[in-house]
């Protein structure tokens, strides 16, 4: 029999001392998944590596420079902003580095360093911190940065160096058109696309085309996207529905008039669709929270992308489409609340 009887005050006091505990007290639950925000951001960065490597392979050191400047400037600008405004510095969450990488991948490899820095400045301060920092920005910061640059510096933003093997990079690379740009030019000049050059599918699938340094290889981006889905960072809803919407809409138009509208396979591999569908539209903060909402959001992205590509002034519409749909996210979230348990359906 165990005896811890304590009937006199001295013993009581000793017992009290002995039982003084130094422990944490908080609400349940007391255990937590190891997958935190920095882990998620790291996974997305890992998933972007194949696309970035293809960019560096075809565009050489300038592409690498844009990536490094983008990532470093975003992190530094976020830290500086938070220091100046007296807020806690949150660069360790990895979101600024990811924004920098995404911005860089949406820029031409020939972008000068100051252009990248301006893009970072807009992305981090105006698009992200003005709204309250991570989690509170309604629009995808990297896309806001990119679109700001596209509108403000149209020439620099549409000067596309020609892709070449990393091992045969010339000092001053020639520039050319993107596949979608060539298409648009052909339509403007001839009214049909039959004269458009470079309409093969294999080059844009592998990445041997002009374009933003991170968007050129559909294959590399799909690999990264599959990684994100397998890691359960994103669900299939946005990329699959987005891509399917573009395929269906361009497919219908192509069947109606293949002289004016390019075939859907070309629309899938050309331009920024894969980068947008797997990495930009899936940004958690700026996309709907439920799977149903994601489907609606992705259909909207796909439809607007097709409208801009086929009838808009710009050859490519992915960035605008995602930004426009970002604005609808609060409405979509409101309309797609899950049915709670215990309600007669």
């Amino acid at each position: 029999m165990k005896n811890i009887s304590a009937s006199n005050p001295a013993e009581d006091q000793a017992k009290e001392q002995a039982s003084k505990l130094s422990v944490y007290v908080s609400s349940s639950p007391h255990v937590h998944s190891t997958e935190d925000v920095p882990w998620i951001m790291r996974q997305v960065i890992y998933a972007l590596i194949p696309g970035a490597l293809v960019g560096v392979y075809f565009f050489g050191i300038p592409a690498l420079k844009v990536i490094v400047v983008g990532m470093v400037s975003c992190v530094v600008i976020e830290a500086l902003w938070q220091k100046l405004t007296g807020n806690p510095i949150t660069i360790k969450d990895g979101s600024a580095a990811l924004t920098g990488l995404l911005l860089a991948m949406n820029l031409p490899s020939g972008a000068p360093w100051w252009l990248v820095v301006i893009g970072s400045l807009v992305a981090i301060t105006i698009a992200k911190q003005f709204f309250g920092g991570i989690g509170n920005n309604p629009f995808n910061p990297a896309l806001v940065g990119r679109v700001f640059l596209l509108i403000s510096f149209p020439v620099a933003m549409t000067t596309w160096p020609e892709p070449r093997s990393f091992f045969s990079q010339a000092a001053d690379a020639a520039t050319g058109a993107t596949p979608l740009g060539a298409l648009k030019t052909a339509i403007f000049e001839h009214g049909t696309i039959t004269a458009a050059p470079g309409m093969n599918l294999m080059d844009p699938f592998l990445g041997n085309v002009g374009g933003s340094l991170g968007e050129i290889s559909a294959l590399a981006l799909i690999l990264g996207g599959i990684y994100l889905i397998a890691r359960r960072i994103i669900t299939w809803h946005i990329p699959v529905v987005y891509i399917a919407t573009v395929a269906v809409l361009t497919g219908i138009l192509w069947l109606i008039n293949p002289d004016v509208y390019a075939n859907p396979a070309f629309h899938l591999v050309a331009g920024g669709l894969m980068l947008g569908a797997f990495f930009m539209a899936t940004d958690m903060v700026t996309s709907p929270i439920t799977n149903m909402g994601k489907v609606i959001f992705a259909i909207g992205c796909g439809a607007i992308t097709v409208v801009i590509r086929l009838w808009g002034g710009y050859p490519e519409g992915v960035s605008f489409a995602i930004l426009i749909m970002n604005a609808f996210v609060p409405l979509i979230n409101r309309a797609t609340k899950p049915t709670k348990f215990g309600v007669v359906r």
Binding site: Y24, S26, P29, H30, V31, H32, V37, I40, T90, D93, G132, G133, I134, G135, N136, M284, V285, S287, I289, T290, P338
Partner: peptide, 16 residues
């Protein structure tokens, strides 16, 4: 256990 500080919601939808 889990005693780290929390940060802003990133609307990832995992809780949903």
């Amino acid at each position: 256990t889990n005693i780290t500080a929390y940060s802003a919601c990133i609307s990832c939808g995992r809780c949903v």
